[in-house]
Computed example of a mutant assay.
Amino acid sequence: MPTDASARFRLVVVAEALRLFAEKGYEATSVDEIAEAAGISRRTFFRQFRAKEDVVFADHEILLSQAADFLAGEHDDPWDAVREAAVLIFDGFSNWRDITQRRYGVVHEVPALRDREIVTIFRYERLFTDYLRRSLPDEPDLVLVQFAATVTATHNYLLRRMARDGSRTTTRELRDVLGSIGHGWRTASDDNMVVAVFPRDMSSRRVAELVQRKLDAQ
């Protein structure tokens, strides 16, 4: 849970807003009703949020900020840092499971919110990609983009499953899945031998697939 008082306050408002959206519908719920349910004034609401739409994704803003702060620290392995940032984000949503599940239902009923969700998800991917570009300037850009996109997509798949089906994926399970995501591989060969170098965390199944593909191409 966030330790910042402002973040905790925003989550209270988010929880009440999503409860009202689920009960009454997004369009039928007014800012005044949200403010009353959260025990704040209309003016206080607009000091924290520009519009109703911002309330729906306020927890995303909190987690994006936390992930950015995490990546701004010192890390021995940038690839692992991105994985851990994804785990941090997932852990936040898991702690706020009620909010996550209610938003899933609300967003899928309102096209404008679905569009906003797509933009918000891309911000995680861009955060990861920009970090990798700064940390690994000599790596091919396509490798960095693919890795960031894969980590983001894996995280989002498990998050949607949790929100939609109530799946209880743990952060340890998420780490295991993310650990199987490789970030590039190289092979060298002559007529009788193939020498391959893979990331340590690449799964044995993926290694076998890539070696077989290389052999088939000979």
Rank of each mutant, 00 (worst) to 15 (best):
M1H: 05
T3A: 05
D4P: 00
A5N: 02
S6H: 01
L11I: 07
L11P: 04
V13T: 04
V14M: 09
L20T: 05
L20W: 06
F21A: 01
E27A: 01
S30A: 00
D32V: 03
D32E: 11
E36M: 09
E36F: 07
T44P: 00
Q48I: 02
K52S: 01
D54S: 13
V55D: 01
V56T: 12
E61V: 11
E61I: 04
S65L: 12
S65A: 15
L71K: 04
E74L: 04
D77C: 13
A86D: 11
A86Y: 04
L88D: 03
F90W: 03
D91S: 15
G92H: 04
N95Q: 14
N95W: 06
N95S: 07
R103I: 03
R103M: 01
R103G: 03
V107N: 06
A112Y: 00
E117P: 01
E117N: 07
T120Y: 02
I121G: 07
F122N: 11
F122A: 12
Y124S: 10
L127K: 08
T129A: 13
D130L: 09
Y131N: 03
L132W: 02
R134F: 00
S135G: 00
P137E: 01
P137K: 06
D138V: 03
D138S: 12
V143D: 12
V143H: 11
A149K: 02
T150W: 01
N156K: 08
L159N: 02
R161Q: 12
G166M: 10
G166S: 08
S167C: 08
S167E: 13
R168L: 00
R168N: 13
T170C: 08
T171H: 09
R172D: 15
G182M: 05
H183N: 15
G184C: 12
W185N: 14
R186S: 09
T187V: 13
A188N: 08
D190V: 09
D191S: 15
N192K: 14
M193H: 14
M193V: 15
V195N: 06
P199I: 00
A208K: 13
E209G: 10
L210P: 08
V211G: 13
Q212D: 14
K214R: 12
D216S: 15
D216M: 10
